[in-house]
């Protein structure tokens, strides 16, 4: 029997319900974590460096996306700019989910912010808006973050050691490219998103000659502008 929102009270009850809701979603993290672990090892990181990056950064997309730049000894500002671009969605998630933390202290909010992932956002958003009790909301949200963190660290570690025993000729680094494709495909379901991706990708190829890898950042900005323009054009046509 489903509890009504009125009955949803207490931290422990929140943790229980959060875990049940999040468990099926969290399975999707496993291949992704394995791939990131293997990709970091293929990039030449020692296990300590790879786990250091994994714990400090804790963001698969930003880790995978910046790896080629790190390997190429790209300048720090470019690595930072690329990481920020890949993390911009979190700014939007953070703004969206922020009202769900009403009545929760600043310290907890920092911890919750650190744990904000695509999966936690997707699973928690509605519940955090609806349920009244702050302790229940904190429990519900935190278990999704803590569980993601544990799964992520465990399976990345597994990936790091798996990569060490697999021969180089298996081109495992290409798994990272496939992982980025797997993230990109569902994003590009709407027409403007597809335009943003095609224009961003095409521009990156055309602008590859720009010094200091500036082409990547420029291509991202052009892609964003193209997606936004396509959205406006689509709305105009629909109106």
């Amino acid at each position: 029997m489903q509890a009504s929102d009125f009955e949803r009270q207490g931290f422990a009850a929140g943790v229980r319900e959060g875990f049940v809701a999040f468990l099926p979603v969290s399975v999707g993290l496993i291949p992704w974590a394995l791939v990131v672990g293997m990709a970091m090892t293929s990039a030449g990181f020692t296990p300590i460096e790879a786990m250091g990056m994994n714990i400090i950064v804790f963001a698969g997309t930003a880790q995978l996306g910046t790896l080629p730049l790190i390997v190429d000894h790209a300048p720090l500002w470019l690595i930072l700019a690329t990481g920020l671009a890949l993390n911009l969605r979190f700014l939007i998630f953070s703004a969206g989910i922020a009202p769900g933390f009403r009545g929760i202290g600043t310290g907890w909010r920092w911890l919750c912010g650190h744990f904000l992932t695509d999966g936690s956002f997707a699973v928690c958003y509605d519940k955090l808006m609806q349920v009244d009790d702050p302790r229940w909301r904190l429990g519900f949200y935190l278990i999704t973050g803590v569980w993601s963190w544990l799964l992520w660290q465990t399976f990345t570690l597994a990936g790091i050691f798996a990569a060490g025993v697999i021969p180089k000729s298996w081109s495992l680094e290409f798994m990272a490219t496939i992982a980025l494709i797997v993230l990109l495909v569902p994003m590009a379901k709407s027409r403007p998103m597809l335009v943003a991706a095609l224009v961003g990708g095409g521009s990156a190829v055309l602008l590859r000659g720009m010094p200091l890898r500036l082409g990547v950042v420029t291509a991202i900005v052009i892609g964003i502008a193209a997606g936004f323009a396509a959205e406006h054009w689509q709305e105009k046509k629909a109106a």
Binding site: T61, G65, P68, T82, A85, L86, L88, R89, T177, L180, I181, L183, L184, M187, A188, P192, M193, A196, A197, L198, V199, G200, G201, S203, A204, V216, A219, I220, V221, I222, G223, I224, A226, G227, F228
Partner: peptide, 11 residues
């Protein structure tokens, strides 16, 4: 549009 543009610009 930033994540899609950024991922494609890398891939």
């Amino acid at each position: 549009y930033a994540p899609a543009a950024a991922l494609a610009a890398i891939v």
